[in-house]
Design a protein around this nucleic acid. Structure first.
Lengths: 211, 211
DNA sequence: TTCTGGTAGTTATTTTATTCACAAGTTTAT
DNA sequence: ATAAACTTGTGAATAAAATAACTACCAGAA
């Protein structure tokens, strides 16, 4: 591939374009221009074209993009042309919400194992999934060739959870705990911080008052 | 203020620094250097100093920063030197998780009203909060002078929810629905997209295979 | 007091990302 | 056929952000 060094912001937008295209396709729309995509997701048309240009030429000059084709291309680029089994650690309220989150299934993700070290939670069911003790993680990961884990435990338990995931062979971690995790080279890690964006809002509201 | 045009990435990091400082303070640590903060949150020391420099001089050369002082400064900058009442629309699993999310309370946010248009949910309790019909939002917002709302509804209902929030006087919205919202000038909006980061992981795992 | 080691604040440099502007190609109408 | 109206892909220009390098300053030891 000639495709090294793609800005992460581009991948982020690609994910957004991709889901926008899904909605267009569902509506039966066949063709769309960069300008319309831009309008629909809130970026500039040039940005849309530039982002796509990292990966090839998908449109037709004078015409635009075929919605179905571009949708497939974006899914392929994002690695979503196949299902992704996930394991989740932390059967609290957030874990529960993630297990039942429709957005994951829609994109080919399925949580196939939920783990916790809380004896009061182990054995309970989250929809059709039983909550297992941490010891069972290794078995599930091997059986389903899971590569990605989600951390939804309290901050204090996040690092040890991550360590265990790595030990069990996971290659990528999505971390909802608001702490920086220390991981070996080669493990992909991304954090989702529920409060950061809220604090950007309060910062901006505060700025506004001081004008 | 001389402080216009601060990169949003700086605010994001400030939020992270701030919570790191809280943990240091709880541990009784008095002084810390930019290098140690950097280490603790996973950025470069120069980045830490640069970020803080947008807002003033908080450290002592040759010494470092006083943890308690810097914590207070960061909280003040982020607008967290006062409580923030929030309203939430969408009493699904995600809404429930957000209501009980400890990270919000720790930072002075408190959800004081939950709303839904689903008759089977209205009247039920989420911890000590009753789920109200949307019609009651206006009243609660006025009574508590709420300025920020959280959207945790399905994608299709997100735009109308946002419109209603704006109509009821909210000035900022945190949106968990994966759609771009169309809002009037002057309303702050930030999206939290639960799947984007997951798709960055699959993209990177995919890249790795093609090497 | 003076020297040494260390650290913040700041300016300069480099890198990265976005926007702009236009050539190249497509379609439709005349 | 030709012109007119669009829209992509892309190289160049611009803007933004991160990094590095440097200066100023503090504390403690000699």
């Amino acid at each position: 591939m000639k495709t090294l060094r793609v800005p992460e912001a581009t991948i982020t937008r690609l994910s957004v374009y991709s889901r926008f295209l899904e909605r267009l396709d569902q509506k039966g729309i066949v063709t769309i221009s960069s300008g319309e995509i831009a309008e629909g997701v809130g970026v500039s048309p040039a940005q849309v074209r530039k982002d796509l240009a990292y990966f090839g030429e998908f449109g037709t000059r004078g015409v635009g993009y075929n919605v179905k084709d571009l949708l497939h291309y974006t899914l392929k680029i994002l690695g979503l042309d196949r299902p992704w089994p996930l394991v989740l650690v932390g059967a609290g309220n957030l874990g529960f919400a993630l297990c039942t989150h429709k957005g994951f299934n829609d994109r080919g993700f399925s949580i196939i194992g939920v783990f916790d070290n809380d004896l009061t939670k182990i054995g309970k069911k989250i929809v059709d999934l039983e909550v297992y003790p941490l010891e069972k993680m290794s078995e599930i990961i091997d059986a389903h060739q899971v590569r990605i884990g989600i951390i939804a435990v309290p901050p204090r338990a996040a690092q040890e959870t991550a360590d265990l995931m790595v030990k069990n062979g996971l290659k990528a971690i999505l971390n909802f705990a608001p702490v920086a995790l220390n991981l070996p080279e080669g493990i992909e890690i991304r954090n989702v911080d529920l409060t950061v964006k809220l604090e950007i809002l309060t910062f901006n509201l505060g700025l506004r008052e001081s004008l």
